[in-house]
């Protein structure tokens, strides 16, 4: 049923697009975070993680988004990082 509904509903209505765009822009507005700031955070994280792991910098994704708070009652901003690992560096192995 749901799929059928999706099939007939060709694309998101313009108000859904508006709402999604607004939600994203407000996360930035509310947290006062500029793209430059995010770039700084990103490069620092890469630098630290590279000491221990080989990571795929090209597909690395880091963004401000939102998530449910621990009590599940509020939506709170969250920094979400998706960092693909290619391999471990020797420094990261447990020494025997």
């Amino acid at each position: 049923m749901v799929d059928l509904f999706k099939f007939f509903k060709k694309k998101d209505s313009s108000k859904d697009v508006a709402k999604e765009r607004l939600k994203l822009v407000l996360i930035h507005d509310r947290s006062n975070v500029s793209p430059q700031f995010l770039e700084m955070v990103k490069s620092e994280i890469i630098r630290v993680i590279q000491n221990y792991m080989e990571i795929d910098e090209d597909t690395l994704d880091i963004q401000l988004t939102k998530t449910n708070s621990d009590d599940g009652e509020r939506i709170v901003p969250a920094l979400v990082a998706n960092i693909p690992i290619k391999g471990m560096k020797n420094a990261g192995r447990q020494s025997l």
Binding site: S13, S14, K15, D16, A18, K19
Partner: peptide
């Protein structure tokens, strides 16, 4: 609002 081209009050 009804045809989905304007955000509703709830939105």
């Amino acid at each position: 609002v009804k045809r989905g081209d304007m955000m509703s009050i709830e939105d």
